[in-house]
Amino acid sequence: MRGFGHDLLRPFRCLARACWGSFTTLVTVLVTRLDLLANQAERRPAPSARLSKVTGAIVCAGALFLLASCTGSEPSSDEPSGQPSDDSALAARPVPLSVTIGSVSGRLAKPDRVRLTRAVGTTISGYFDAAYLAGDDVDLDKAFRSFTRGAQGRARADRDLLTNLDLAKTTDQVTATQKQAQLSVLAPRGTAAGVTARVRLVYVAHRGDKGRTRVTTTGRLLLTRTSAGWRIFGYDLARSHVPVGKAESR
């Protein structure tokens, strides 16, 4: 049944993508039509209104058709793999890490905050990219390069959680959908001495026959400044993964 719906909808989907900007208009139309139906149920309708209700229902159905097409942006499983898909387009536009300062305990001038955000962002981004978003190629040396020496040893022991290693062998491609870090900064003497970064990384691992898996990693990274720049000396991370896109994984 779902396959039928997908094939039938492909032309509409294209149309819906083209008119994505009018998404809200469609919703408005839909809500208005349903509202009208409800109001008319309260009044005694004139004979001509019956026709209007049938028209309304058809408009609603049409709108839902288009909306449904808009949400179904994934290619179906029988789409030739050589053709560019939405996912590959997504992969071509890497999601940047969003870094914000949540709190500063102490004092830190605005330019220093900007510098800190950039430096810590580079460290965390480097870790995420090498550890989780490198697809089937997870190089542990590279993954934990932004860790302190002692933390590297501990991280290697926890590599199945701290990298995408357990899925890497069956992963063709990785698409990041969320990369966030909120920083709590300790700056007792006008200089940042330590940072706790609350992080959230969400990505989809495309795993061929095994379908797709959405992986979410959240938790804390503890950073301190070393002679080599900001380094991760501690972590408290949790990871979960769920299959996504049932149609594709059948």
Binding site: L8, D158, Y235, R239, G245
Partner: peptide, 22 residues
């Protein structure tokens, strides 16, 4: 006609979460 969302989760709320600290 509404197809599943592109990133539809599996129909379960039971998700195994593993964690590591160091």
């Amino acid at each position: 006609v509404v197809p599943p969302s592109a990133l539809l989760d599996a129909p379960t709320s039971l998700v195994k979460v593993e964690s590591a600290q160091g």
